[in-house]
Simulated scan of single mutants.
Amino acid sequence: MNNKNKTVVRSMDILNLFIEHSELSFQEIITLSGMPKTSVYRMLGTMEEMGFLEKGSDAKYRLGLLFLKFGHLVSSRLDIRKAAFPFMNALHQETEEAINLIIREGHETIYIEKIDTYQKVRLYTAIGRRSPLYAGACPRAILSFLPDTEIDAYLDTVELKPIAKGTITDKDKLYDMIRQARIEGCTVSHSELENYTSAVAAPIYNNVGDVIAGISIAGIEANYEGEKVDVLKKKVKDAAYEISKQLGYLH
């Protein structure tokens, strides 16, 4: 790897810190990145100059407006996001819980949209965040409705690592949950990606009937018990079906 490539990779390492942190000081960036002070200083200056980062009056760095331009370009090309947003918004208005939209990327999922105006507690999920297919209601809503051969191939190669106290790490139990999801048409999780949070989710299909995304309702675990969960299951399944129809799904 030549010096230019190293600089690009290190710059991306710094930018990736802002997926989980809305703002960071110079020292926090050094600590989190593990890079030398002089290298961080040089790269921050360049990224600020190019508009990738901006430095506030409080001396903390934040993502620059350039990302809004890129973000809008990417979002406008994601038909799934366009199709889903009105239904996500309606679901959020009804439930006042966080609504998430994810797509699959290999053995992972990535959150591409989230609405949480009424959700006062910040959850694990955030746009751009990744999760393994096996963990959490929304990722598992995709995994559960893949062809059997894909599920088997995935579970033969993946290591089921614990993320939170409720993460499913037993393969037999995971298969049981997949079978249950197929019966109910949705998934439920408790403390799988973050302790004391829960979610209910359903798969979204394209025009040829392939599962391509998942939508979830998520919030504090104490609110996801008894009859309320049944109500949320129906709501998320209805929303997922309407989004699928927008994408040409005719089942």
Rank of each mutant, 00 (worst) to 15 (best):
R62A: 11
K60P: 02
K37W: 07
E94H: 08
S57K: 13
N89H: 15
K82I: 10
D58N: 12
S57Y: 12
L44F: 01
G51N: 03
L68Y: 10
E94M: 14
E48R: 12
G51C: 09
L44R: 10
P36M: 15
T46R: 08
L53N: 02
V40G: 05
M35K: 08
A90C: 12
M50F: 11
K69L: 08
L53Q: 07
L68S: 10
L65Y: 13
L68C: 02
R81W: 01
M35H: 06
N89Y: 15
P86V: 01
P36N: 15
G64F: 00
K69T: 12
P36E: 14
I80N: 02
L78D: 03
F52S: 09
R42L: 05
R42S: 15
L91T: 13
L63H: 05
F87H: 10
N89E: 13
D58S: 07
T46P: 01
F87Y: 15
L44K: 10
A84T: 10
G34R: 13
N89V: 09
N89D: 10
S76R: 12
F70D: 02
N89L: 14
E54A: 03
E49D: 14
S39K: 10
R81E: 10
P86E: 02
K82H: 13
G51E: 05
S75P: 01
L73P: 04
G64Q: 05
H72D: 14
E49G: 09
P36Y: 13
L68R: 12
L53K: 02
E54N: 06
Q93E: 15
A83L: 05
V74D: 07
L73R: 09
N89K: 14
